[in-house]
Amino acid sequence: MQLLTFSVAGQPYAIESRQVIEVLPLVPARPLPQAPDYLLGIFTYRGRLMPLVDLARRLGAPPPAARLSTRVIVVEIDAEPGTDRGCGTAPLRLGLVAENVVAVRSADEAGAMLPPLRLPGAEYLDRALRIGGETVQVIDVHKLLPAELTAGLAAAAAEVGS
């Protein structure tokens, strides 16, 4: 299994690379009024407008420094997380801003150290793995955003898609 690693507040995290569509350099986003602080705004990706989420702030850490290694990870998530509505569901694409996005690393699934945690308010925490002497927390992007926010964003995406 391949994991795209990044860091939040100096700690290593990862996203399964099969959930990743592309990694982009940091792009400016247009802010949205009345949005939660981790929702940085919307940006243009290949001619489409997509929401941009700050992973660090979503995980409760200070905002990331503007470096070359601070990049945007484009992912695709289910409109309604936790339900399987088949191919009829319009997938939602998100840009996630993360620090130190410089490597894709292989991990053996049998080496999973900790099953997914079930912390209230932090359902996005998936397994924790051991890679090259480091403990890496895997993030489940489908559960990253609150359900209602996901639904709202998905509705807008569906309008655009039709």
Binding site: S17, L24, P25, V101, A103
Partner: peptide
């Protein structure tokens, strides 16, 4: 960046 995207 290119290498990451290539890996993905």
């Amino acid at each position: 960046l290119l290498s990451i995207n290539a890996a993905i």
